[in-house]
Amino acid sequence: MRGFLKVFLLLAMAGAAVFWYLTEPKVLDAQSLPTTPGDVEKGKYIFYASGCASCHAAPDAKGEEKLALAGGHAFKTPFGTFYAPNISPDEEDGIGGWSDVDFVNAVMRGVSPDGQHYYPAFPYMSYQRMNVQEVIDLKAYMDTLPAVKSQVPDHDLPLPFRFRRGLGAWKFLFMDNKPFKAVQGASDAVNRGAYLVTGPGHCGECHTPRNLLGGPETDWQLAGGPAPEGKGVISNITPHRDGIGDWSEADIASSLETGFTPSYDTFGGSMVAVQENMAHLSAEDRAAIAAYLKSVEPRPSRWKERKPEK
């Protein structure tokens, strides 16, 4: 019996050690970063490509107000309510005083400067694919935005999810920390679109459904599904007839510029803010996004009730 207890204790300790090892935040070190200083103008472009203001501006901010990244927007999800933090350059309430490597690790690894995991409501799963230099450019631009004071509430989560270390296990399951990889043989436009959609644009964060653990269902990439917030649905943006199969590349590019769909309906909900960011991109980049979306595997909308086909 005493032998059994010893074995049990040893196994438990080994398990704890493995858990501790696996859940340890994985970060990039300062030496591995490119040495070119951030470029403000390029960073401004990345700011729109990656849609920072859509979540981090104060709720209902319009126009210029969207550049004050005071946070406070509430995201009611099945895992609890998340509040977008202040990421303005304010020293106390925001991220003023962060180094480049702090910022890169927050954005691309989901790890705070003091080594805590961020929740994946922050789309680092997509941002991990970004070009590191572009993230440094982004920081240079964000440093020029107004510093604002704001007190954002703590995330309101049920007990098991309050334990941030556990997010290391989530990352172990779903996150690979790999950079964007261009597809051999695909056109430059398709690869550029793939980078924008899967990296900074983080389209899949909403348009790819999530499993019970909140990880992406990669077999259903970009196929949409019931919206995690509210009672609506997230559109299928694959070239299936349930999605955007009957949209031309020009239709897609034009909808991202104007907000109108080919049938002169409009985008609604949070897609309005996304579209307004996409309108800041170059026409070539919107065309690249369209080319990529038309190139992905068509997938049906599995949540749709179907009448048997005759």
Partner: peptide, 12 residues
Amino acid sequence: CKACHEKFRIKK
């Protein structure tokens, strides 16, 4: 169109 749909419509 967009301004109103942003707040007052939920896609189904």
